[in-house]
Design a protein around this nucleic acid. Structure first.
Lengths: 212, 212
DNA sequence: TTTACTTTCAAACAGCCGTTTGATACGCTC
DNA sequence: GAGCGTATCAAACGGCTGTTTGAAAGTAAA
């Protein structure tokens, strides 16, 4: 019925507002630092709303995590009709935009990056749904570039080298701003960073390919 | 006098125990997660001891930070009589051992790595005394390798690429243990990681040197 | 209108936090 | 031993946390 739909959407509207506010706050503070009261304040909801709708603060974080945009990025890249090296460049560009662009609606990756250093019970879900697919994707891509000459261990370390470079710019943002106050992560800067990481990493990958 | 020395050392013994416990706890939890009560429990001191000796929890963290080992590493490397490439390998080996080896007494770098992602008022001191010298050191080292062909911006990004790889193994430790449970940071593994980062990075550096 | 159910709300709860307090014990000078 | 700073201690303080409660409001079916 009309009324039934209305009440359901009314309830789901506050649910959605809570999820939006949660993503915002969880991406700016770590799990301990993000308070239920601030999330509810931003969502214009009562403090009890979180526990009513999601059971707990942890439950809210778990439901706030949504990696559909990341998954879409990966599948689109796999389907792209381009050579592995160009696909690596494309991936790095899209991934860094997702990681660094403040304008980007996807705060998921920022929450993810934060969870890496400071595990919460939600980390298991993050590893399973986001990080493991990411590593698998990048592992296959690097394998396409280097062929079968290098071992699994060395391949994995190449993947780590790439992700390490990517995450550095997010993790160390507060430090970099102190060292170079004029630094801004606008679109042009992000694309330049992604280009650097691609050049740097392709050279590293192909070098290891030669020596082994 | 004898007695004067004894009382001073008695007081400084609890100071030292507090500092040791603080380094331990601050390297395992972030600033919010590390509690004064646990630090005092490990130091076998009263909860009031922190505020009595250091004024506040923040003051304790500030005094607990001591980068002499890191500074020694840098100066020793600068004085080493070796070509820049080998000095880079040496630095990476020593730095990764400092970062990853649980046996290593220096928890400073682990606190530092933690602070990167989660700034506290102590970050200013960390940047000034540890990170800025580190970046400056590595910048000069990379400059020695590439010559004057590449610009300051690109040079800085090479430094970021190297530090990013290093910090990845510390930041993502919880994740890597979930992805590969058999991973252990023993001395052999750490040295292999450092060797990989050196190979990977030298190729990246020299490639950028050629293309620019 | 009555009934039943879902959602919101102010208020309170229990627990931890960093910090302060005032008393107590200690070490040393005189 | 008296006097005096210093260091330690149990206890409490004020504040913030996530969560719970019970009443009130809102909605839809009878």
């Amino acid at each position: 019925m009309m009324t039934e739909v209305e009440t359901r959407t009314a309830s789901e509207q506050t649910r959605a507002r809570l999820l939006d506010a949660a993503r915002e706050v969880f991406s700016q503070h770590n799990f301990q630092g993000a308070t239920v009261r601030e999330i509810c304040r931003r969502a214009e909801a009562n403090v009890a709303a979180v526990n009513y709708h999601f059971g707990s603060k942890e439950g809210l974080l778990a439901e706030a995590l949504n990696f559909s945009q990341l998954a879409a990025l990966l599948t689109a890249n796999v389907k792209a009709d381009a050579c592995p090296k160009i696909r690596l460049r494309l991936f790095l560009r899209d991934f860094m935009l997702m990681l660094l662009d403040e304008k980007n609606a996807s705060s998921q990756c920022r929450i993810m990056a934060r969870e890496l250093a400071d595990p919460t019970p939600a980390l298991d879900k993050i590893v399973l749904e986001a990080i493991a697919p990411l590593h698998e994707f990048l592992g296959k891509l690097v394998r396409e570039i280097v062929g079968d000459q290098i071992g699994e261990t060395e391949l994995r370390r190449c993947v780590y080298s790439i992700f390490g470079q990517c995450q550095f710019y997010r993790h160390s943002h507060p430090v970099l701003q102190r060292l170079h106050p004029k630094l801004r992560y606008d679109r042009k800067e992000i694309e330049a960073i992604a280009e650097h990481i691609a050049e740097f990493s392709l050279a590293g990958i192909e070098h290891l390919d030669k020596t082994q």
